[in-house]
Computed example of a mutant assay.
Amino acid sequence: MKILVLNDSRAGHLNQCLAFAKLLNAEYMVANVRYPKRFLKALSYLFDKMGIYSDALFECTVPEGVFDVVVAAGSTSAYPLKVLSRKLGAKSVSMMLPRGYRYDYDVIFAQEHDTPPSAANIIPIAANFSFISPAGLFRASSPSIGIVIGGDNSVFHLQADRLETQLRAIIDAFEGYFFAVTTSPRTSKEVEALLERFTFGYQVIYSCNPVNPIPDFLDQCERVFITQDSTSMISEAVSYGNAYIEVLPLEGNGENKFSRLVGRLEEEGYLHVYDGTFAQANRKIDFREILRKAGF
């Protein structure tokens, strides 16, 4: 199987598509896709409703060769996915529910927190597709706790004082453990300054050292704490390793996709929302089995 991956320049979208290809152990090539003008993307919704498939709306240099599958995630690549899969005679696979477009793709893997409709080609999934590969950035030589800290997004604000309270409670509860901590690209300077007041056995401040030890935490740590702001990080945590997963809740605005994701995963035993207590929640999603059942 040979796969064409459409890249809309959003890392979270690209990573889901790459996970699809890597989980299948398939050959793949990546093609960047973009709309040169904003109104052209708006026009793509109209063209889709009318059943018009034109590659004149977007820019994408397709590598030479024969492809069996074209895969994409996100609204920017949703219309190009339809156009190019038809042009190449390949199966179309969307890794997210492509809202605003007709759902006439060959396969749609739709996150349950997006409340997808029921259809033969729509496969609900509990979290984003992830492919985890430890890089050896962190190696535990004693029982260890991993802590993954994100940052603000459109829904949540990561408050430094609340995080400090959570961190001190965790450290007190796991006295004698080795603590490994990493931040993310969205972590604020205020939170980075807070972390400098602690002495952790292993610490990555992403703005100073842009590496990703999260796969190693999942592989090496007994328990991993993750802030609630990233569906990607949470999806990784519930799909690899044996670590118990604790989600650190953040201040948000009512119900949202993050709270729906975490709530559903907690109900099914994949994680526990930290409330001052800890749970034995380490069930893992088998994405390869999901692909097998989808006919791949």
Rank of each mutant, 00 (worst) to 15 (best):
Q228W: 13
Q228D: 15
D229A: 06
D229L: 07
S230H: 09
T231D: 13
T231A: 15
I234E: 07
I234R: 05
S235F: 11
S235Y: 10
S235M: 10
S235E: 10
S235H: 08
E236Y: 12
A237H: 06
A237D: 05
A237R: 03
V238G: 10
V238I: 13
V238C: 12
S239D: 02
S239Y: 06
Y240W: 10
Y240K: 04
Y240I: 02
G241W: 02
N242G: 12
N242S: 14
A243W: 05
Y244I: 06
Y244H: 14
Y244W: 06
I245H: 02
I245Y: 02
I245K: 03
E246K: 04
V247N: 00
V247C: 05
V247T: 04
L248H: 00
L248K: 00
P249I: 09
P249T: 09
P249K: 07
L250Q: 08
L250M: 15
L250I: 06
E251C: 03
E251T: 13
E251L: 11
G252Q: 05
G252W: 07
G252P: 00
G252D: 12
N253C: 03
G254K: 04
G254T: 09
E255C: 02
E255A: 11
N256R: 04
N256C: 11
F258H: 15
F258C: 01
F258I: 11
S259E: 12
R260E: 09
R260P: 01
R260D: 07
R260S: 07
L261A: 08
L261R: 03
L261W: 05
L261Y: 09
V262T: 13
G263P: 11
R264F: 13
R264M: 15
R264T: 15
R264A: 15
L265C: 12
L265A: 11
L265D: 10
L265R: 07
L265E: 10
E266I: 03
E266P: 04
E266Y: 03
E266M: 06
E266F: 04
E267R: 14
E267A: 14
E267Q: 15
E268L: 14
E268P: 01
E268Y: 03
G269K: 01
Y270M: 06
L271E: 00
L271C: 07
L271M: 05
L271T: 03
L271S: 04
H272N: 06
H272M: 02
H272C: 02
H272Y: 13
H272P: 03
